[in-house]
């Protein structure tokens, strides 16, 4: 076994361990929302690590690209499904063991994102889609390029959904990724510990409303997703004008603590996107 295989094996076993802990958390945790914390997030990170391990063991750049794609996909989808199931569970009145609940006595107005996007053709997005297409086919021949171009241009032309027009700062994105990765691993470790130890006395569930400083939907979306991908916190509801996040936390300490954590993420997220109001100044 060479170095790459050993590293791949370690990643594989680490990912497997996270997945098994996620499944055990599903058995062990006391309430539906708490179980969601254990299951959806840790297992997504576990799957990412397993695919990464397979790519490293094979020593293949292509597979590494696929692993990055799978990780990015899971970072986008796992929080959404966690949030939607969590929200449905809350609205169904299946949540009754909260020590603190900001959502109980407020009727949140639904978030309406104004379509200030006006569509708009983006070369960057089209090139990005073509690259993903070629990565998925694992082929760089002209035919694949042409097929990818047709699909990407069709999507860009036919797309109806508004897309925020903020451009992304690469430096801010890198800072966010590094700081956020640390947060994800430390909170995964905390929830894993909770799963391994038989008593669940540290679990104090609460829903806290946190008002965001930003007015940008992109920043709010990134913060909401980042919160939901981290085990131990889940975005239950997001309301607009002003933007307020309702966060379900597994280990409630104080409202100020939750606010501090969300603000920290928000500040990092604000550095990822350029404010459209500020551009041109």
């Amino acid at each position: 076994m060479n170095v790459l295989e050993v590293l791949g094996a370690v990643l594989l076993l680490f990912g497997t361990a996270l997945s098994v802990l996620a499944a055990w958390g599903l058995i062990d945790f006391p309430s539906a929302l708490a179980r969601m914390h254990a299951a959806t997030k840790s297992a997504s990170l576990g799957l990412s690590l397993i695919v990464l391990g397979a790519a490293v063991a094979a020593g293949s750049w292509e597979l590494l690209g696929i692993a990055a794609l799978v990780t990015a996909f899971l970072f986008m989808t796992a929080p959404i499904s966690g949030h939607m199931v969590g929200r449905a569970t809350y609205l169904a009145g299946r949540v009754d063991n909260l020590v603190f609940d900001d959502l109980a006595d407020s009727k949140p107005s639904p978030l309406v994102i104004r379509n200030n996007a006006q569509g708009g053709w983006s070369h960057t997005r089209v090139v990005g889609m073509i690259l993903v297409w070629m990565l998925l086919w694992r082929d760089v021949s002209p035919g694949t390029l042409l097929g990818g171009a047709v699909v990407a241009c069709s999507i860009e032309l036919l797309r109806r959904a508004p897309v925020a027009r903020n451009s992304i700062r690469l430096g801010g994105l890198a800072t966010f990724a590094v700081r956020y990765m640390w947060l994800v691993f430390s909170s995964n470790a905390r929830v894993a510990w909770e799963v391994v130890t038989p008593s669940n006395e540290l679990i104090r569930e609460a829903i806290v409303a946190v008002r965001l400083n930003t007015r940008q939907p992109s920043v709010a979306l990134l913060v909401a997703n980042a919160i939901s991908y981290t085990p131990g916190s889940l975005t239950i509801e997001l309301t607009g004008d002003p933007l307020v996040l309702y966060v379900h936390v597994l280990h409630f300490d104080s409202v100020a603590q939750v606010e501090r954590d969300v603000r920290e993420l928000e500040e990092l997220a604000q550095r990822v996107f350029r404010d459209p109001a500020m551009t041109g100044t």
Binding site: S19, R35, G46, A88
Partner: peptide, 20 residues
């Protein structure tokens, strides 16, 4: 919600097994 989250997890574990 418990059931669907559990089945979602089964699919993720299946994907992990396939990748392994």
């Amino acid at each position: 919600a418990d059931r669907i989250i559990a089945l979602d997890l089964v699919l993720l574990l299946l994907a992990g097994g396939v990748a392994a």
